[in-house]
Design a protein around this nucleic acid. Structure first.
Length: 271
DNA sequence: AGTATAACCTGTCTGC
DNA sequence: TGCAGACAGGTTATAC
C-alpha cells in the first residue's frame, strides 16, 4: 500500500518515538516474513531511521540494521496499553527507554512485506537498494528527469512506476501527478514536449510533497505508526474516481489498465 | 529494452 | 445466502 509519502510518514514517526530506545524483546509469530537473524537485534538501540524509496531501514547500535518493506498491506503499529494486537501481527517488538516500555507490532495481511536483519555496512549492497533509481527531492532533479524521460519508449505512467528509474512513486501518486500535469498516462515518455516534462516533474514533487504534508493516503489499509489514517485520500483528483466528474472540466473520469495496474485519468484534460 | 502475465497472500466488494 | 470473479498502495520472475 504505502508509497513514498506513507513510508516517509512512518519513518519520521519511528525516528521520533523510538530513536534511543533499546530493543528488549522480540516475539516472532510468523518467521517466514523474516530474513536474517532477528534475535541478534535484542539489546541493541535504535540510532537512525532511513528510507530508500519505499524501503525503511532502521539502524541499531553494534552495526546492525533492520530493513522493512511494507509492500501492500504491511503496518507498523505503536501499541497503546491494553490495545489488542492488530490482525495478522507477525512480530512484536518491545522497546525500553528509561522507565518507559513501548511495544510495536509488525502486521501484514497479505504477507508480501518483509523484515530483513543485516549488518549496517551491507545495507547499501542490498539488491533492492542497488537497483533503485533516483530519489525525489534528492538526486532526482529536473535535468535527471528530462534525461530519463527522453530515453524511454514506454508509456509515461509505466516509467513513473519503475522503481529502477525513480524511487518511491506508486500507483496513486503516478495517477495524481499525471492529472496535475495534464498528461495522458498512455503517452510515450519520449514524446512528451519539453514543457510537459517540466510540468510533470513539478507535479511529481507537488503530489509527493502534499502526500507527506497530509500524512499519506489511507484509501484503504494504510495507517501510520499511531494507527491513524492519513488525509491525502480526501484530496484525490482522479485515483479511484472512475465515472466521477473531473474537477477541472467535469468530464467523467476513466479507468484503464496499464501493465496490470489501474490508471485513472481525465480523457479531456489529459490528452 | 520493452510488455504482459502470473505469482506471492488475504480481504472486500459486486453481480448473478 | 452463496458463490464466482474482480480488484487492492508492491515487487519479482519468466516468457515473449
Amino acid at each position: 500500500m504505502p508509497e513514498l509519502p506513507e513510508v516517509e510518514t512512518i519513518r519520521s514517526q519511528v525516528a521520533a518515538h523510538l530513536a534511543g530506545s533499546k530493543l528488549a524483546a522480540i516475539e516472532v509469530k510468523r518467521a517466514s516474513i523474516i530474513k536474517g537473524e532477528i534475535t541478534s537485534l535484542k539489546g541493541k538501540t535504535i540510532k537512525v531511521v532511513r528510507r530508500y524509496g519505499k524501503l525503511m531501514v532502521v539502524d541499531f547500535s553494534k552495526g546492525l540494521s533492520l530493513a522493512i518493506h511494507l509492500k501492500m498491506t504491511g503496518r507498523l503499529t505503536l501499541l497503546k496499553d491494553e490495545m489488542e494486537l492488530p490482525i495478522h501481527t507477525h512480530v512484536i517488538f518491545t522497546f525500553k527507554q528509561g522507565d518507559e516500555t513501548k511495544r510495536v507490532a509488525f502486521s501484514d495481511t497479505r504477507r508480501f512485506g518483509f523484515l530483513h536483519v543485516l549488518p549496517t555496512h551491507e545495507v547499501g549492497e542490498l539488491k533492492f537498494i542497488r537497483s533503485l533509481g533516483k530519489e525525489p527531492f534528492k538526486d532526482l532533479d529536473l535535468a535527471a528527469f528530462v534525461e530519463m524521460v527522453r530515453g524511454a519508449t514506454r508509456p509515461i505512467k509505466n516509467l513513473l512506476l519503475d522503481q529502477s528509474r525513480i524511487a518511491g512513486i506508486g500507483n496513486i501518486y503516478a495517477c495524481e501527478a499525471l492529472w496535475l500535469a495534464g498528461i495522458k498516462p498512455t503517452k510515450r515518455a519520449d514524446k512528451l514536449t519539453k514543457k510537459e516534462v517540466k510540468l510533470l516533474f513539478g507535479a511529481v514533487e507537488s503530489v509527493l510533497k502534499e502526500g507527506i504534508a497530509r500524512g499519506g493516503a489511507s484509501d484503504n489499509d494504510y495507517r501510520n505508526l499511531l494507527g491513524e489514517k492519513g488525509e491525502y485520500q480526501n484530496f484525490f483528483k482522479v485515483y479511484g474516481r472512475t465515472g466521477k466528474p473531473c474537477l477541472h472540466c467535469e468530464t467523467p473520469l476513466k479507468r484503464i489498465v496499464q501493465a496490470g495496474r489501474s490508471t485513472f485519468y481525465c480523457p479531456t484534460c489529459q490528452s
